[in-house]
Simulated scan of single mutants.
Amino acid sequence: MSRAITSETKHSIISDFKEITKIRLSVSVVFSSIAGYLLGVESVDYNTLILLALGGYFMVGASNAFNQVIEKDLDALMNRTKYRPVPAGRMSVNTALIIATIFTILGIVILYTINPQTAMFGAISIFLYTCAYTPLKTKTPLAVFVGAIPGAIPFMLGWVAATDDFGIEPGTLFAIQFFWQFPHFWAIGWFLFEDYKKGGFFMLPTGKQDKGTAVQTIMYTVWTVLVSIIPVFGVTGRLYLTPISGVIVFILGLGMLYYAIQLYKKMTVLAAKQLMLASVSYITLLQIVYVLDKFIR
């Protein structure tokens, strides 16, 4: 009996740790960073790759832990978040703050060992997510714009880690993931609209599930697709995409655009969920295509 309780307690602690650091989101960020690194590097240094993955994980984990401390009272109001460790009372605010602080220090120190610029962008990401995006979520829909900045950093962070340089190439990677954030998060904001409203969050550009939001979602999807194929034209320095890969990325983009248009036509929660899934598939497959294109050509 006692052995079973101990096992359950351990499982709960591990689950809460995963939840406070949002491990699935952290993994997706690490994936983006590694993709950016592979695009920028001349020859792969596996030590740097491991440091980037660890630093990226700690960076996102810190941001999410701080976020859940700041929003603990609002999280308790929403079905989606009320069972998180802090609002549910399974983890104290002090424990969450200790985790966030340790993760911040580890993330920045590890990224600094790669190069100072990588650490700087990592620190900017944590600061903007915690001190700008999080408090603005209850104030204005512009929070999504602010949040798109730290959200777009991981893809370019990998390039900076590989080259110790910020130029047109990482700027383009940043732009791709920056514009992508809008249809992605507005889709989430749409299908979680009622739950977000309980917490007082303003995520949709018009504040409502209306045609205006749907039209802006289509516009930003179009911009995402257009920015994604710019490297085909040889104007983004060492970041180049062959025409064949450009066509593949464009077709993937048309797939996401289809679901954005469906949201406009149907205005339903299901259509918003489908767009969200399409957006996740798009950015993941785009990064895979970019990396494969570099190493195959």
Score class of each variant (00 low, 15 high):
Y129W: 05
M203N: 08
F178R: 00
A148Y: 08
G171I: 10
Q209I: 10
T113A: 04
T163Q: 05
I168M: 12
L192D: 08
L128E: 01
I218W: 14
T172H: 09
T101G: 03
I110L: 01
F145Q: 13
V144I: 15
H184E: 09
T101A: 03
T206V: 11
G158E: 10
F185Y: 07
P150S: 13
T163N: 15
I188P: 09
T138S: 04
A148I: 11
D210V: 07
I102L: 06
T118R: 01
P170C: 05
F103I: 07
T140K: 06
M219W: 12
F201V: 06
Y112M: 02
D165T: 06
L173Y: 02
I124W: 08
T206S: 14
V144R: 14
E169F: 03
G171V: 06
A143N: 13
M219T: 14
A152P: 11
P150K: 14
G167C: 10
G189N: 07
I176G: 05
I149V: 12
D164Y: 11
I126L: 05
L192A: 04
A187T: 13
H184G: 09
Y196N: 10
T118A: 03
G207I: 10
F193C: 00
G200E: 11
T118V: 06
K137R: 07
I168N: 11
A148K: 02
M203Q: 09
A96I: 05
D195H: 07
L128R: 01
Y129G: 04
G107T: 05
Y133I: 05
F121N: 00
F185G: 01
P205T: 14
L142C: 13
T113Q: 11
I110Q: 02
F127H: 10
I124K: 04
G207S: 12
V146R: 08
G200I: 09
T101S: 03
